[in-house]
Design a protein around this nucleic acid. Sequence first.
DNA 1: TCAAAAGTGTTGAATGTACACCCATGG
DNA 2: CCATGGGTGTACATTCAACACTTTTGA
Lengths: 252, 252
Amino acid sequence: MADAHDPASAHDPANFPPFAVTVDLVVLTVRDGTLHVLLVERGCQPFAGRRALPGGFVRPEEDLPDAARRELREETGVEALPAHLEQLATYGTPGRDPRMRVVSVAYLVLAPDLPVPRAGTDAAFAEWAPAGPLLAGADEATGQGRLAFDHARILADGVDRARAKLEYTPLATTFCPQRFTIAELRRVYEAVWGCRLDPRNFHRKITGTPEFVVEAGSTTTRGGGRPAQLYRAGPAGWLIPPLLRQRPGSGQ
Amino acid sequence: MADAHDPASAHDPANFPPFAVTVDLVVLTVRDGTLHVLLVERGCQPFAGRRALPGGFVRPEEDLPDAARRELREETGVEALPAHLEQLATYGTPGRDPRMRVVSVAYLVLAPDLPVPRAGTDAAFAEWAPAGPLLAGADEATGQGRLAFDHARILADGVDRARAKLEYTPLATTFCPQRFTIAELRRVYEAVWGCRLDPRNFHRKITGTPEFVVEAGSTTTRGGGRPAQLYRAGPAGWLIPPLLRQRPGSGQ
DNA sequence: TCAAAAGTGTTGAATGTACACCCATGG
DNA sequence: CCATGGGTGTACATTCAACACTTTTGA
């Protein structure tokens, strides 16, 4: 087949027009029993005034995860973050940024309920927003409150990943403070999955999985009722067999 | 904090030095009962003469999955491929390509046992190589037969993803020809996971999952013994509950 | 004393695992 | 007839789901 590219020059990267590379962050937390996502209001074009995922350009000598951590620090003011960070996916469709060809590597962050983030240098302000309404409108045309760029899709992919990972990893503990009760952990699952779980069976499943959580040695009565044992996240990396999502419960 | 970047120029992508963006392909198949990966021998610098994953630079107006499909077509000569293609992960550590800053989006392809691939335009030749030895040496220093760049790590990530996905998706069928027997499908699982599965229970599990496979209406005696029913891949997207890997069996 | 929440016991259903057994073909 | 591999029946162990019940606090 006739190749439009001359083979000699096709192998020299200097002959290709430049791409810009950015990182975008899907930062999730659980507040008041529902899933929230960290958003910024864009302070400059394009999409000025619209809400977007935090993120920015990768620097020339910066590794991708370092860029993600830097952007997160700039938006939240948190230095040593007790959060989980993993690569989500990469989005590079031509035209997704009207300025030029931009390839964006998205990262997923699961964090405990951090203090209200301060405004970063790149954004007019930052805030926690409930994820539900943003997911519901992900496939609509770009309406008033819609996210900039293709961020609604990135957010949907991030929430899907988080929901799936709760099934077979102990990542739900990263949504909790360092010491937490089994009931608090259960409320994380209920918030992320949007369903009810049986408190008794959940308690047995979690405490019955070796190394999933370890007793912290003290109790708390926050929330009222009988004092609950406090736990820390354990060293287990996988939950086998997985914890299965059930259909929305009959009660409530 | 003092930011080394001037905020005004930090938002203009034209002020950032260019990145090159490539796609790399982890193409897996099952041949002779073992997992194989498609490799090319590099025909130009850097790493000339070393084996590598097929891949190449993304063109200016080309979407990422299109670039992956184009590179696969150029290496294998297959136009309409009956294979599964999904994004794997993105690798962008500074220095991974000695020429310049290159961010590579890796794609995972699961394919049936295709005819021997022809040499592509970008490679001296292409061949199927057993995956096992390449995985075993993934953490060694770059020895003689080692892969170029960080491709050993990308390959390991791809094989991990494939192994995990067989558990809860019907993707094993993409390793098979269009019409296959349950035993042939079982041999795919055994090759990818490197363990033995009980033929009776496997048969029941597969045929008992609605929409996972559908009868093709004919039988075959390839392999000898009683004629086996032929099946096609069904419309099911998920395998619930998942098929669990067992430890290497006692027999054999 | 009551309400609320933590934690335990028990039971029937469903599922996974192991393996005996029969079926259909080629040699 | 026998070897080979496809496909089915059955029994045991394990796990899950539902819910009654007890424990321990605050009001």
